[in-house]
Lab assay of single mutants.
Amino acid sequence: IRCIGVSNRDFVEGMSGGTWVDVVLEHGGCVTVMAQDKPTVDIELVTTTVSNMAEVRSYCYEASISDMASDSRCPTQGEAYLDKQSDTQYVCKRTLVDRGWGNGCGLFGKGSLVTCAKFTCSKKMTGKSIQPENLEYRIMLSVHGSQHSGMIVNDTGYETDENRAKVEVTPNSPRAEATLGGFGSLGLDCEPRTGLDFSDLYYLTMNNKHWLVHKEWFHDIPLPWHAGADTGTPHWNNKEALVEFKDAHAKRQTVVVLGSQEGAVHTALAGALEAEMDGAKGKLFSGHLKCRLKMDKLRLKGVSYSLCTAAFTFTKVPAETLHGTVTVEVQYAGTDGPCKIPVQMAVDMQTLTPVGRLITANPVITESTENSKMMLELDPPFGDSYIVIGVGDKKITHHWHRSGSTIGKAFEATVRGAKRMAVLGDTAWDFGSVGGVFNSLGKGIHQIFGAAFKSLFGGMSWFSQILIGTLLVWLGLNTKNGSISLTCLALGGVMIFLSTAVSA
């Protein structure tokens, strides 16, 4: 259960009878995928790494000078000259100064003066180019299975845990398959586009800190620079940016070097996208990844198990997540596992009318040892309800109150669905055939309105939902006002479609 501690969480529900669903994975976010007769899966884009970055340009932001020398000439005696002028490691300046009897010249006039100092770069920052084909995306998957609280967001041991898996995709191999043991396998067909235009970005490294910066900004930095990788004795261009020549006297000129420019660069980098280094690879934390999940090989585990009949206890007080759902960790005293956990939410304890829904599909106890633990997640209705676990006299209950409203949740879900469709863009549509167009249209309606429909009408039977949709269509056909007619027709059509397409 990876997503319960992530604030940016998206719930995606598969269409009834569908074998695939489109998701948008982004750094700092987590996606929970639910479908009829399929286990619930949490998917998170953990890291995006980039390798084989080529150094484009380096800037010196802290330097020192040494070996200063000057040469001067009297008027009419030609130009002052130093051998160091031809050495690229030196920074030199030529000027004219007033000369006369007082400073060793027989004539009054302008004399030539040249001053040089050896330039040494102490600290530099480097910009590297990123090729999209060198990106690698690491995705962690977790099935809502027989897990306890100690396994949440624990990325170790996934090789031997059938509840978890790690997959890596690249532009050259965008397809992967996550093996989930008894739950089958989940196929991923990803489109490795981060949403960032790397043709316009460089990877900047300064003092063990890293950013993504725009090329134009990078090339306009007014500091000494050299092109390409460091060859040991780089040729620094624009050395004068960190060196200041003071007022010249008759035979000498003082040279000083400016202080470190790291603070000024940090100020200019305010708002830039931060990154990290992992050995020789860069780690990015921006952008998104679009994936199509193929769920035809994914299956529920323990459908044929019998119900657990022994007593359950709450190991922890049920807690609310950031998303309005409830996490419950229970301990089973029996030894008759594997068995299914009898769990439901009810409005009252007399009729036990089921409300809400299970995020953890078909929760089971897989071990036959005593005191096995299991964590599950529920989506309670707004208002008061009861969490009921167990059967008969051994069942345990917990009162729950959820604040908020169904309308607010439906609106929030619609906005999130619209954002998801905007990110998917043209990849969500198939114009290759008439059937493809209608299929894409259905998927689009489901992406945007599916979660809201589930919130508003999830407790009704599909037949009642179709009746309401048919009534809206009838009202649309018999209303003389054009805008009201079109609105009723659209709402009725969407409702009829979703009542037959969205899983219960």
Rank of each mutant, 00 (worst) to 15 (best):
Ile4Val: 15
Ile4Lys: 06
Gly5Ser: 02
Gly5Trp: 07
Phe11Met: 12
Val12Lys: 05
Ser16Tyr: 05
Ser16Lys: 02
Gly17Gln: 06
Thr19Cys: 06
Trp20Cys: 07
Val24Pro: 03
Val24Cys: 06
Leu25Lys: 08
Leu25Ile: 11
Gly28Asp: 05
Cys30Phe: 08
Met34Asn: 08
Met34His: 12
Ala35Asn: 05
Ala35Leu: 01
Gln36Trp: 13
Asp37Phe: 07
Lys38Tyr: 07
Pro39Arg: 02
Val41Ile: 08
Ile43Asp: 05
Ile43His: 09
Glu44Ile: 03
Leu45Lys: 08
Thr47Val: 14
Thr48Ile: 09
Thr49Met: 15
Val50His: 02
Val50Asp: 05
Val50Phe: 14
Val50Gly: 03
Ser51Lys: 06
Ser51Trp: 10
Ser51Phe: 08
Asn52Cys: 05
Met53Pro: 00
Ala54Gly: 03
Glu55Asn: 01
Glu55Asp: 04
Ser58His: 14
Ser58Ile: 03
Tyr59Met: 11
Tyr59Thr: 03
Cys60Ile: 06
Ser64Tyr: 11
Ser64Asn: 15
Ser64Phe: 13
Asp67Thr: 00
Met68Cys: 08
Ala69Tyr: 06
Ser70Glu: 05
Asp71Phe: 04
Ser72Leu: 01
Arg73Ala: 08
Cys74Ala: 05
Gln77Met: 13
Gly78Glu: 06
Ala80Val: 10
Asp83Tyr: 06
Lys84Tyr: 09
Ser86Cys: 01
Asp87Ala: 05
Thr95Leu: 08
Leu96Phe: 15
Gly104Ile: 04
Gly106Asn: 01
Phe108Arg: 01
Ser112Leu: 00
Ser112Trp: 06
Val114Ile: 13
Cys116Asn: 08
Phe119Val: 08
Met125Arg: 03
Thr126Asp: 14
Ser129Lys: 04
Asn134Gly: 04
Leu135Thr: 01
Tyr137Gly: 02
Arg138Leu: 14
Ile139Ser: 00
Ile139Asn: 02
Ile139Leu: 15
Val143Asn: 08
Gly145Thr: 05
Ser146Lys: 03
Ser146Gln: 15
Gln147Met: 11
His148Val: 14
Ser149Pro: 15
Ser149Ile: 13
Gly157Ile: 15
Glu162Val: 00
Glu162Leu: 10
Asn163Gln: 12
Asn163Met: 10
Arg164Gln: 01
Arg164Ala: 01
Glu168Asn: 01
Val169Cys: 05
Thr170His: 07
Asn172Trp: 11
Pro174Tyr: 09
Thr179Cys: 14
Thr179Asn: 14
Gly181His: 02
Gly182Ala: 12
Gly182Phe: 12
Phe183Arg: 05
Phe183Ser: 10
Ser185Gly: 09
Gly187Cys: 02
Leu188His: 11
Leu188Asn: 07
Leu188Met: 14
Glu191Thr: 04
Asp200Trp: 05
Asp200Phe: 02
Leu201Trp: 01
Tyr203His: 12
Met206Trp: 06
Lys209Thr: 09
His214Thr: 04
His219Ala: 12
Leu223Gln: 09
Thr233Met: 09
Thr233Val: 12
His235Val: 14
Trp236Cys: 06
Asn237Phe: 04
Asn238Thr: 03
Glu240Phe: 02
Leu242Lys: 04
Leu242Met: 14
Lys246Arg: 14
Asp247Arg: 00
Ala250Pro: 11
Lys251Gly: 00
Arg252Pro: 02
Val256Glu: 15
Gln261Pro: 10
Val265His: 12
Ala272Ser: 13
Glu274Val: 09
Glu276Asn: 02
Met277Cys: 03
Lys281Ile: 14
Gly287Asp: 08
His288Glu: 07
Leu289Glu: 06
Lys290His: 06
Lys290Ile: 06
Lys294Asp: 06
Lys294Cys: 07
Asp296Gly: 11
Lys297Phe: 03
Leu298Tyr: 10
Tyr305Ala: 03
Ser306Lys: 00
Phe312Gln: 08
Phe314Leu: 15
Phe314Asp: 01
Phe314Cys: 02
Val317Leu: 03
Ala319Cys: 08
Ala319Pro: 05
Ala319Leu: 00
Glu320Thr: 13
Thr321Lys: 08
Thr321Val: 04
Gly324Cys: 07
Thr325Pro: 03
Thr325Asn: 05
Val326Lys: 04
Val330Asp: 07
Gln331Pro: 03
Tyr332Gly: 05
Ala333Asn: 01
Ala333Pro: 05
Gly334Asn: 06
Thr335His: 12
Asp336Phe: 13
Ile341His: 09
Gln344Phe: 03
Ala346Lys: 05
Asp348Ala: 01
Gln350Val: 08
Pro354Asp: 02
Gly356Glu: 06
Asn362Tyr: 10
Val364Pro: 00
Ser368His: 04
Glu377Asp: 08
Leu378Asn: 05
Asp379Glu: 05
Pro380Thr: 01
Tyr386His: 12
Ile387Ala: 02
Gly390Asn: 07
Gly390Gln: 05
Gly390Ile: 05
Asp393Gly: 09
Lys394Trp: 02
His399Ile: 00
Trp400Ser: 07
Thr406His: 05
Ile407Thr: 12
Gly408Gln: 12
Gly408His: 12
Ala410Cys: 05
Ala413Val: 10
Val415Ser: 03
Arg416Ala: 06
Lys419Trp: 08
Arg420Asp: 11
Ala422Ile: 15
Val423Asn: 07
Asp430His: 12
Asp430Tyr: 05
Val434Cys: 12
Gly435Val: 06
Gly436Phe: 07
Asn439Phe: 11
Gly442Val: 14
Phe449Trp: 13
Gly450Arg: 07
Gly450Met: 13
Ala451His: 07
Lys454Glu: 12
Leu456Asn: 07
Gly459Val: 02
Met460Asn: 08
Met460Trp: 09
Ser461Asp: 10
Trp462Met: 07
Ile466Val: 15
Leu471Lys: 08
Leu472Lys: 04
Leu472Asp: 02
Leu472Gln: 03
Trp474Asp: 10
Asn478Asp: 09
Asn478Lys: 13
Lys480Asn: 14
Lys480Met: 08
Ile484Asp: 10
Ser485Asn: 05
Ala490Glu: 13
Val494Ser: 11
Phe497Ile: 12
Ser499Asn: 09
Ala501Asn: 10
Val502Gly: 10
Ala504His: 10
